[in-house]
Design a binder for these strands. Structure first.
Lengths: 190, 190
DNA sequence: TTATAGAGTTGAACTTGTTCAACTATTTTC
DNA sequence: GAAAATAGTTGAACAAGTTCAACTCTATAA
């Protein structure tokens, strides 16, 4: 099994020995997920955390009005998690769906907890990753407040051009928080 | 000095020995901040992380158009941080201002790093807190996408009634991402 | 290969929220 | 306690984004 992508990703976040890297990787098992299949559906309890080796996922919720709301897209080197459901063992509010045939590395809850306890560096890894993610979420909320839909659309397709190519306009619209009809009008006027 | 609030806050997040609690607290020094004074201003580098003992703060950015954008309010038992500036030693995008005479516990960057290194439980503490915060930010973004300004206003004032009381409508509007004129109209119609 | 479902487009009417300006409280400061 | 600054209100005109409906254009499964 090829853990290089995961190892490199971890090394980009923290300093870590090869021995610890190998220990961490030994807990992950790879899994293939077919296009349109779900790793998690709303209402169930999340049992795994995943690292994307290849492919692309969409993480979204469906609100009371029936609208799909995309939290984020996860391509190569991104994590798949529902922190809330995983931490508290409560039913998830999220759906995680493969947008194309994909390959992930999964770790189950018990193993993750064991890893946290046996290797303090894993706490650091997820502390650092969570803090980086927090900053990104704060920036995204600010952008939602002070930029128009058009500006947000261009920011997204400039920042993630490779991901944007894999997505339908409907999916992009649900990420930006606008209707797909309006996105269509935005694209028309440039 | 009274570290009880900080100790209790930490115990609410993780399991920890009294000895470790005392070690952590020993790094924090208390400071009074007068109403309207800043703990951090945009452009400077953030040197401290703070825990609010008493009072209330507003954390906001000013964008190119000159609009104030409030990330969050921090009352008793909340943290004051600019993760980005603190982690990377880059100039901050944030302003942290006291809304009333306040009391905080501060830890400087070198001490925080020393704490992370000497006490693994501190990594866990901030990992857990960051993950909880992440969930909250995700939910807030979703609410921004699928709720109207009126719904968001009521959600805010119901969730944080004690904080809402200390705020001007202008400050609440900048948190909700709307103009204060529009908030005034929302309040009129109930 | 054709039926069919889903994705994208367009227009008209509508709703939500903004802008600007003038005005009225309410605090703050000296 | 008066003057000045700041906070909140209101209205009218406007801009941004939604809704619904009708249509076209792909993919794709039987």
């Amino acid at each position: 099994m090829n853990y290089n992508a995961l190892k490199q990703h971890i090394k980009n976040n923290i300093q870590i020995s090869n021995e610890d890297l190998n220990t961490i990787c030994s807990y992950f098992k790879s899994k293939s997920i077919k296009k349109k299949d779900f790793l998690l559906t709303q209402g169930s309890i999340y049992k795994y955390e995943g690292f994307v080796l290849d492919g692309c996922f969409r993480i979204f919720t469906i609100d009371k009005k029936g609208n799909e709301n995309t939290l984020y897209f996860a391509a190569k080197d991104w994590w798949l998690m529902d922190i809330d459901s995983f931490m508290n063992q409560t039913p998830s509010n999220l759906n995680i769906q493969a947008l194309e045939d994909s390959e992930v590395l999964l770790i189950n809850r018990a193993d993750k907890i064991a890893l946290y306890e046996s290797l303090p560096v894993v706490e650091k890894l997820f502390r650092v990753m969570s803090q980086k993610a927090l900053v990104a979420w704060q920036r995204r909320l600010i952008r939602n407040h002070c930029e128009t839909a058009k500006e947000r659309y261009h920011h997204f397709s400039n920042t993630y051009p490779n991901i944007a190519l894999k997505l339908t306009d409907k999916q992009i619209a649900s990420y930006l928080g606008i209707t797909h009809e309006f996105l269509s009008k935005i694209k028309k006027q440039g």
